[in-house]
């Protein structure tokens, strides 16, 4: 899971992540997408650019749950 807020300034960022990821994967320029989303400070921009969500990869290896 990626962090909820920017490490440096504390602006909540994660709510933009899904849209950011979708648009960048579709081939848009990340700088333009960040501008569109209203993320202007460079602390927030680097948090957003550098965030990689690996939860989907590691969740496969989670312990199996046995109900009791």
């Amino acid at each position: 899971m990626i962090p909820i807020r920017c490490y440096t300034c504390g602006k909540p960022l994660i709510q933009y992540y899904d849209e950011f990821k979708k648009r960048v994967e579709a081939g848009e320029d990340p700088a333009k997408v960040l501008d569109d989303l209203g993320i202007e400070r460079y602390c927030c921009r680097r948090t957003m650019l550098a965030a990689v969500d690996i939860s989907k990869e590691i969740i496969k290896f989670s312990t199996k749950v046995y109900r009791w």
């Binding site: 899971m1 909820i4 709510q15 899904d18 939860s55 989907k56 969740i59 989670s62 199996k64 109900r67």
Partner: peptide, 16 residues
């Protein structure tokens, strides 16, 4: 919560 779409935790299988 101010924003509706903040992911909290991922779940899989029969996790709860």
């Amino acid at each position: 919560p101010v924003y509706d779409n903040i992911p909290i935790v991922p779940l899989i299988g029969n996790q709860k």
